[in-house]
Design a protein around this nucleic acid. Structure first.
Lengths: 239, 239
DNA sequence: TCAAAAGTGTTGTTTGTACACCCATGC
DNA sequence: GCATGGGTGTACAAACAACACTTTTGA
């Protein structure tokens, strides 16, 4: 950061965009809002909005999410920067630099439209297409990032409620990666990763209505996963 | 991105900051410039500057780097977004949102001061402290990110010239991680990763003036590393 | 008694690690 | 020759994948 002598800087609008992801009925869903105004009126878009003068992008992201959809931190929201999109022309009317975030949520509460959004909806990731602005790309980037981070971080627990079963945790991996995993091996790997999950003593829960009740776990204190939980190599991946 | 009806947005200045890293004489160096003006006059800082109205942050990053230090893309520059720093108050005078980049460079050409920089210098990573603004933190984040990405991407080749030996590649890992690696095993892992490096047929080069000439390799086409090249776990890491 | 889901055991293969050892070059 | 750095081989151990098997629940 330099060149303060040249105060001939151009003012930019700074916004945040949020790719809010959750799992529901075995599919990855993204929170979308329908735009009420031009440009892209009537099109679906990622929630977001302007950063206010007194707040950071992170603060703005949480505020916008609450305003537009009613989701708050209390809902167990995991928020993390994705990247910043700054191409000139990404907004047809003005120069907008947008800091994009990925947000992960355990349960998908019903959402309502808010201030600027006509309506808000959980859309299956696959059917979220032709979004406003460059949101298709942001969403694709978010999904890629999340898929990759499942391998070498404890991120998967962010998709789970405070107490969860190993089966639920496995479903996170399977849904995001679109693969199936061997249950015994998955369980062993997770339990062998110190700090990934910790057992809730004595607790158990029935999952599918049938079957043996599953032991409950909480997210551990670790954030990184060593060794990583690699996804099965789909034949022909450049590796 | 929503809420265009409320045109009461606040103008922000948008800048780029660059953590330009290279290896020289077995140590990790970062490119710093000495600030000519207040605030932080006389302090070292990461190179960077304002994003112009007609350019993206990526374009601005390349331009600033060329202006302040004379480095160009032709020098084999690898540029990639780190994250965006947007806390209010990170610049004492005005609201500045900064998109930070990590840049990796093979050789460290001599650098000259430029437009706004009194002088530019390659500083050993360890002795770069008390930088202007929040640049200490940006630099630390950059180093962490690079260290992590060495494990599961082909990023290490970005520190190497177009043709390099496996010994040089290994030194990249050892220097950034601050560890030593077993040479035979390192070689095997690298060669077993399809697309990481490709042999330059028949080529060889003497490295230390002594010893057997080493075969030369080029960066391959892959960007991800499957399986990853994990750094040896320093005893007591949370795993 | 059956199906479903959790959890344990076992086995063969792969991978990783820690070495010892040979090769080519400059001094 | 010898020091230096490149390159190969090997043997033991750890990790992984696949799959059989037991346990506990609801219907």
């Amino acid at each position: 950061m330099d060149g303060y002598d040249t105060y001939a800087y151009e003012p930019f609008a700074v916004t945040v965009d949020l790719a809010v992801l959750t799992l529901r009925e075995g599919s990855l869903r993204v929170l979308l809002v329908e735009r009420g105004e031009e440009p892209y009126a009537g099109r679906w878009a990622l929630p977001g909005g302007f950063v206010q003068p007194d707040e950071s992008a992170e603060t703005a992201a949480r505020r916008e999410l609450a305003e537009e959809t009613g989701l708050t931190d209390a809902s167990g929201l995991h928020l993390e920067q994705l990247r910043t999109y700054s191409e000139p022309g990404r907004d047809p009317r003005m120069r907008v630099v947008s800091v994009a975030f990925t947000a992960l949520l355990a349960d998908a509460p019903e959402v309502r439209g808010g201030s600027d959004a006509a309506q808000a909806r959980w859309m299956p990731h696959g059917s979220a297409r032709a979004l406003a602005f460059d949101h298709d790309r942001i969403l694709a980037d978010a999904r890629d990032r999340v898929g990759a981070k499942l391998e070498y971080t404890c991120l998967a627990t962010a998709f789970c409620p405070p107490e969860f079963t190993l089966g639920e945790l496995q479903q996170v991996y399977e849904t995001v990666w679109g693969t199936t995993l061997d249950r015994p091996n998955f369980r062993r790997k997770v339990l062998a990763s110190p700090g990934f999950v910790e057992a809730v003593p004595g607790a158990a829960r029935l999952t599918g209505g049938r079957g043996k009740p599953a032991a409950l776990y909480r997210a551990g204190t670790a954030t990184a996963l060593h060794p990583p939980l690699l996804r099965p190599t789909p034949e022909g991946r450049p590796a």
